[in-house]
Design a protein around this nucleic acid. Sequence first.
DNA 1: GCCAACGTTGGC
DNA 2: GCCAACGTTGGC
Length: 154
Amino acid sequence: MAYWLLKSEPDMFGIDDLAKCQRRTEHWDGVRNYQARNYLRAMRRGDQAFFYHSSCAAPGVYGVVDIVRAAYPDPSADDPQSPYYDPRSTGDNPRWFMVDVRFQRRLKRPVSLSQIKQTRALRKLPLVQRGNRLSVMPVSPTEWATILKLTGEH
DNA sequence: GCCAACGTTGGC
DNA sequence: GCCAACGTTGGC
């Protein structure tokens, strides 16, 4: 099983929105960056991911989600009405993919970006690397455990 | 709102 | 293939 981190702007879609979804499950669609897409495609059912809130007053890790469906074509790429529309992606040759994620839990104590930056064991996280804007990134088992420790949950 | 950093686009 | 221009991300 692998670990990941998924960014989202809570004003658009936060961890609490996911908890309110039917079956607490939603498509993680709209990813339009090739590196992030490749990570999406590497995800397997049963993987876990941190739900990270970005572009907000207190950026950080707020919850844990389960990957409940591996990558499949993102239909918003084919929808001219969608902000994620990409005419270069076609039905028989899809360019963009999404996974399904299910709410697992909210962290009792979120782990802030500044905490993450202050933690030596997390220095290699793409999240805190200079200029990094990846919205989907891998998290090593050690990093995963380190972040959970920071929540005080163990 | 500012701005640094980055990815993408498109002319050549 | 180069690279300037542009748009986006995201912390502050």
